[in-house]
Simulated assay, not measured.
Amino acid sequence: MRANRTTVAAIGTLALAGALLAATPALAVTGKDTKPAKSAKPAAPKGDGAKSICKRLPETEKKVAASITRLGGDATVPGSIARLEQRVANAKADGHTEIYTYLNDRLTYRKSLLPTLQTRQTDLKSVSTWCAAQGAPAAKK
């Protein structure tokens, strides 16, 4: 009984494959299905997204402020520059060269992130003023 099921399944699979292979040249000859494929590329933006930016502004300001606070924290704060500096120093002291290199590269990036976030925070204050002038909800502080 089991051999019959396997045989029937194999024959069915072969028949389906044969039907698909036979249909492909027929489509090419008849000219059917010659529509160009739709482009998956999204449309270009029609505006600058100011309405959405103003809508998300309070949450964005909170996230940027929290990130700046976290990065500026002491060695007990996970994600702070001071904590990562301590880990780099520990790796160097323990002679873990590869770990030291990896953590030191992360530290370099994290240190460069702080001025970027501070600039963004300043920019968001200007955006908040602009949004309020446009009648958008003022950012909560």
Rank of each mutant, 00 (worst) to 15 (best):
I11G: 00
G12R: 00
T13D: 01
T13F: 07
A15I: 11
A17D: 00
G18S: 11
L21V: 08
A23Y: 15
T24M: 04
T24Q: 03
P25Y: 08
L27D: 03
L27Q: 09
A28G: 10
G31V: 15
G31M: 13
K32N: 00
K32V: 07
D33H: 14
K35W: 01
P36Q: 04
A37Y: 05
K38M: 06
A40I: 10
K41M: 09
P42A: 05
A43Y: 01
P45I: 05
P45M: 03
K46S: 15
K46R: 07
D48A: 10
D48G: 11
A50Q: 01
K51D: 01
S52L: 06
I53H: 00
C54R: 00
C54F: 03
C54T: 03
R56M: 13
P58G: 04
E59P: 10
E59G: 12
T60Y: 04
E61I: 09
K62E: 01
K63M: 06
K63R: 08
A66Q: 12
A66D: 15
A66K: 13
S67T: 09
I68L: 14
T69N: 14
T69A: 15
T69F: 02
R70C: 11
R70E: 12
R70T: 15
G73A: 12
D74I: 14
A75R: 07
A75G: 09
A75M: 03
T76W: 08
V77N: 07
P78H: 05
P78V: 04
S80P: 15
I81M: 01
R83T: 05
R83C: 02
E85N: 04
E85T: 06
R87V: 03
V88C: 11
V88F: 09
K92P: 12
K92A: 15
D94S: 13
G95P: 14
H96W: 02
H96I: 03
Y100E: 15
Y100L: 02
T101P: 13
Y102P: 11
D105F: 13
R106C: 07
L107N: 09
T108E: 05
Y109G: 10
K111L: 01
S112W: 02
P115A: 06
T116I: 11
T119Y: 03
R120V: 08
Q121V: 02
Q121S: 15
Q121C: 05
D123S: 07
K125W: 00
V127G: 08
T129K: 11
A133C: 04
Q134N: 10
G135E: 13
